[in-house]
Design a protein around this nucleic acid. Structure first.
Length: 708
DNA sequence: AGCACGCCGACT
DNA sequence: GTCGGCGTGCTC
């Protein structure tokens, strides 16, 4: 009797261990099996074959699901690395690495197939009509059966029956590629040429391309990719979750034609599966996509490009909480290829590594059209606030519209009213699950929790005192749109936020609409990222201090990145651009650094604060959240956890927002020694299991955002 | 995470 | 005397 070791699906970190089953059928590492586990059917993922065991009661596997391994050796190894580094189960790493349709889940996801027609040979006689059609279409094969029937009409059947063509079932494919655009090849600037040469001629493996906004980083990317493709190697092109995804895909497609796979969260399961197979079957050389694209089954990777490397969407905020940068570096090492991280506003972590020559720093200091936009800090203490706008910004918008140029306005808050407060009894509408204020959305006349996404009916009656009157304080993008339309009745306004981009491809559609006929693009931070429209010469940022008031250690870095990136959307063409930043604190070093486009100045200042406060990149952090319906219970277990971690500096326990009606308590662990931190956290997992408590412990290694 | 097991209170 | 409440512990 042959024995195998499998990981069991769905069980949390508590059960990150192998279980032995008997299996006489041949089965390989990396395949799924169906097993009986604790009196129910589960999916197991084969990790080891031909193992020895002296356990009694070894059950047989019920069914071998896969003939071929789902993951190759490299990706199986990568899962072990993710599990170790991020303190998560190996099975959770496998799950994120696979497209949903192939995940080791207990519910089978259906893969839809359709018929394709292939050329075949036959000696059976054809009628002249049949022969004519056959001659016409035989060079166009293979094609979809539906298309074939359209072309051949009634002659389809005899051609198939006589064996001149044959049918084969393939997974149904949808065209996920965006509309085709013309490629525009730009003459490289001297800086760009030097950057390309420096990267290609170096023996270093990881580069940080620091280029100011509008300096043509994409063109550098495309040239580097070209060289690698000529060597018949593959290129992975990573982009952040939103915003510039459609624009970047278009440019890569325009340059390299159709041998591109695309992978991002907006694809449905079927589409993801198709794109995954394109890579697995070696039908494409370039993959462009968001963080999940980092797990594509490459066999000969030649280059990894990571655009806007500072973007926080590169870190997954559910298990496994990996950072895409770590995955990129690991895979580059495995394939012996280069990684280029790129940003106009690098993360402090990456820039400090470049500073210490861990990464090779390459800089682009000039814009293609050589003119940085001019920044105007508008001191809101001295301005009258009209519908959220200062007179200076209103004048600037009017001037820009008069010139027939375009405007981008950024307000990082969606909805209509961020807080709904009864004007009679001061009651604030709150989310019962999260305990935070609900936002009023006018479009569907409802209250939404921006934490959990729950939507509640709103009958405009206070649940406490039954009054019908509410304060109208604060503003989100929805209300701003209304106000702007009032101020500029002839302007065509496009609003882009999480609400207006919910539908599929809404992103690309809104951007197209703005490009063709829009005057003002108004939105949340997603309008700050990567957009490249030559006619935009004014960017206005409202409530710029919002980002600074968080207590998070990273809030200044995030604020700086957001302001500088948003500023970078202005004046990207021949015309000079302006940026108006409305703030109550124009003297703040974040504002002053943005004013002078002084990244290095910001970096030095922020690093000195991080050093003083003992925060990354000077130490490694781990964030642990204990949750339970009783605050007291969660607090008790958190205190035990803190005791267990007494060798480190631990902040907390601190009560934070509830989630799903569970009270939550947070610990933050700081350590200068990464290995020691990692090992101790694994011991904490063991310790927590030994407590046999029903308080949940959730671990986030190297967190980017602390306030949850 | 489920789901069986087990130890007490309410009820035909 | 039994039905079922949910706290606890195990899963090859």
């Amino acid at each position: 009797m042959k024995l195998i070791n499998v990981y069991i699906e769905h069980l949390t970190l508590q059960l990150n261990q192998l279980f032995t089953y008997a299996c006489d059928e041949p089965v390989q590492k990396g395949c799924r099996v169906k097993v009986d586990f604790a009196h129910r059917e589960c999916i197991g993922f084969v990790q080891e074959t031909d193992v020895k065991s002296d356990l009694k009661n070894i059950k047989p596997v019920l069914e071998v699901i896969d003939k071929e391994p789902l993951l190759n050796e490299e990706l199986l190894d990568l899962a072990q690395y993710i599990s170790k580094r991020y303190v998560c189960s190996v099975i959770s790493a496998y799950k994120t690495m696979l497209p949903p349709a192939l995940r080791p889940s207990s519910t089978y996801k259906k893969i839809i197939y359709e018929d394709h027609v292939y050329l075949s040979s036959s000696t059976l006689p054809l009628t002249s009509k049949q022969a004519n059609v056959y001659e016409e279409i035989k060079d166009k094969l293979p094609m979809k059966a539906s298309e074939f029937r359209k072309l051949t009409k009634s002659l389809a059947k005899p051609l198939i029956e006589k064996g001149y063509v044959k049918l084969r079932k393939l997974p149904k494919s949808n065209d996920v590629l965006p509309s085709y655009i013309e490629d525009s090849i730009h003459e490289l600037t001297l800086e760009q040429k030097n950057a390309i040469e420096e990267i290609e001629n170096s023996n270093d493996s990881c580069f940080l391309l620091h280029g100011v906004t509008g300096s043509g980083k994409t063109e550098v990317f495309l040239h580097l990719a070209q060289t690698v493709l000529k060597q018949n190697k593959q290129v992975l092109f990573l982009v952040p979750e939103i915003g510039l995804t459609p624009m970047m895909i278009e440019r890569v497609m325009a340059r390299f034609q159709r041998k591109v796979a695309i992978y991002h969260s907006q694809l449905n399961d079927q589409e993801k599966y198709e794109q995954y197979c394109l890579v697995k079957d070696k039908k494409v050389d370039i993959v462009i996509g968001t963080r999940s694209a980092a797990f594509m089954p490459f066999d000969d990777l030649g280059l990894i490009l990571m655009d806007e490397e500072h973007d926080t969407s590169y870190k997954q905020d559910s298990m496994p909480r990996y950072h895409t940068r770590d995955i990129a570096l690991w895979r580059a090492k495995y394939h012996g290829c280069k990684v280029v991280l790129s940003s106009a506003t690098p993360s402090l972590e990456s820039y400090s590594r470049a500073y210490k020559n861990v990464y090779h720093l390459v800089s682009l200091t000039k814009r293609i059209y050589d003119q940085m936009p001019e920044i105007h800090l508008v001191d809101m203490k001295e301005e009258r606030n009209q519908f959220g706008l200062s007179q200076r910004l209103i004048d600037a918008i009017q001037k820009t519209l008069d010139k027939n140029d375009q405007v981008i306005l950024l307000l990082n808050r969606r909805g209509y009213l961020p807080v709904v407060r009864c004007s009679n009894c001061n009651e604030v509408m709150m989310c019962p699950d999260c305990g935070i204020a609900l936002t009023y959305h006018k479009s569907n006349d409802s209250l939404m929790c921006h934490c959990c996404g729950n939507v509640y009916r709103f009958d405009h009656t206070c649940p406490k005192c039954h009054s019908h009157h509410f304060f109208q304080v604060g503003m989100g993008t929805e209300r701003l749109e209304e106000n702007i339309q009032m101020l500029f009745p002839n302007a065509n306004i496009v609003r882009m936020d999480a609400d207006s981009t919910k539908r599929k491809n809404a992103h690309a559609k809104l951007l197209k609409e703005f490009e063709q006929s829009g005057d003002i693009l108004l939105g949340t931070q997603m309008v700050a990222k990567g957009l490249d429209f030559e006619r935009v010469t004014l960017v206005g940022i409202l409530q710029a201090d919002n980002a600074l008031i968080h207590s998070d250690y990273r809030s200044c870095e995030i604020a700086y990145q957001m302001l500088e990136q948003a500023s970078g959307r202005s004046g990207r063409g021949v015309k000079k651009g302006d940026v108006y930043i409305q703030t109550y604190d124009p003297g703040h070093y974040v504002m002053q650094s943005v004013l002078k486009h002084d990244y290095l100045g910001f970096f030095r200042k922020e690093m000195s604060y991080r050093h003083l406060g003992v925060y990354p990149p000077y130490v490694f952090l781990c964030c642990i959240i204990y949750s339970h319906e009783s605050l007291e219970k969660a607090m008790d277990v958190a205190l035990l956890g803190k005791q267990f971690l007494s060798q480190f500096k631990v902040l907390g326990p601190l009560e934070i927002n509830m989630r799903q009606r569970q009270k939550r308590v947070r610990l933050i662990v700081k350590s200068k020694d990464e290995t020691q931190l990692n090992q101790t956290i694994w011991k904490l997992v063991e310790y927590h299991r030994s407590l046999k408590t029903n308080v949940k412990q959730d671990i986030n290694m190297y967190p980017l955002i602390l306030e949850e």
